[in-house]
Design a protein around this nucleic acid. Structure first.
Lengths: 202, 202
DNA sequence: ATGGATACGATACAGCTCGTATCGATCCGG
DNA sequence: CCGGATCGATACGAGCTGTATCGTATCCAT
């Protein structure tokens, strides 16, 4: 029901005192620190303002709620990462990419995306932001990599790359949220191996 | 930080006026109806009390927050369902079970579990409830069915049933939350088929 | 340099929700 | 028939939200 963010750089363009980038960073850091310390739900805009030593209006001028702040901070944190790096083999590169994502989720970023994904279930605008700035960019990269793998004969030509993404990566999100077990490298390897070779006995 | 439920049937046993089961049902129905109409986040305890024609204290005597109410209502709604029914073949029964879960998620119960799963990310007690009363019972059933399938030679003997569950069912949860596409039977069939035969070209 | 325009910290305000407390009335069991 | 817990209703303090306003600070254009 609430807007997920106000307007990223909409500063009516000309005239007046420009917004301080130093304050911007202070707010982002305060929001992330507090969210990791006390939990996203427990903190308020007041808390963030107090921690960042800024007025509450200064925050509301840029973001409309704490989810939008954490969203910006999260994207800035993880943006340079999670690519398909070259490995010993084509499929090995996929496995390592899955591992790096699991490692990300085990750390602080895991707590952040857990909160963002949950919050997005109640905030349609945040859901769009999360899809546009986190989910879809990574899916597009994966699709391109998988299509290349199909062309090169490493992957079955009759698979939909979208379904392939879901089979490989959805379990990582699932375990992040459900807590049915540790998000370990061993788990990732298991998902990868079984998904690659199939579950049916031949 | 907040308790997920108070005590299910703790009515100090003897003496005094017993709690009305009619009121219990009215509250559960009011909570679900309102959550589906306006969204879980938008409704308050006051709204539920008003819709159920009940005092707010009457609700707080039984549940400690709206998530606990919706949790009870959800479990009561879907409890008799989602079993592995006999089909033309062993694996076909798995596919049909996945379809029935997707169908559940497409309907009103999908909206409910979406809210509960999201809320559980912020409420540890609710997370335990959700795992004990929804997730684990179904995982246990699936594990038993898969172990039988391994013994009967339908499934690879070197798969961990837990990993198998995640590969098959996590994509359904993923799409429910991410909205990367429709939760259609065609999608379920695709996940099932690819997971069964594997992604790697042989 | 000077004035217009905006950001900034601080404070106040109404509205909503929560959780608890309390009231008299109701209803059940011993 | 009487103790005891539930019931609807109401009130209360506390916290958070979103907006408004004040005086000050800072930048851009003239």
């Amino acid at each position: 029901m609430e807007p997920a963010r106000k307007q990223t750089g909409a500063q009516t363009s000309s005239g007046g005192r420009p917004r301080s980038p130093r304050i911007q960073q202070a707010i982002l850091k305060a929001a992330v620190d507090l969210a990791l310390e006390s939990g996203f739900r427990a903190i308020s805009m007041d808390d963030i303002a107090a921690r960042a030593n800024v007025g509450r209006m200064t925050i509301y001028r840029r973001w409309c709620n704490k989810a939008a702040i954490v969203m910006d901070a999260f994207v800035a944190r993880v943006d340079p990462g999670t690519l398909f790096l070259p490995a010993q083999s084509y499929t090995e590169s996929i496995r390592l990419q899955m591992r790096s994502m699991a490692k990300l989720f085990r750390g602080k970023d895991g707590a952040l995306i857990r909160a963002l994904l949950a919050e997005a279930q109640f905030d349609p605008r945040l859901a769009v932001e999360l899809r546009d700035r986190w989910t879809m960019p990574r899916r597009k990269m994966a699709i391109a990599y998988f299509q290349q793998g199909i062309k090169d004969g490493f992957l079955r030509p009759d698979v939909d790359p979208d379904a392939m993404i879901d089979i490989l990566y959805a379990p990582i999100y699932y375990r992040l949220q459900m807590g049915t077990g540790p998000l370990s490298d061993a788990y990732v390897d298991e998902i990868f191996a079984h998904a690659m070779k199939g579950l049916r006995k031949v």
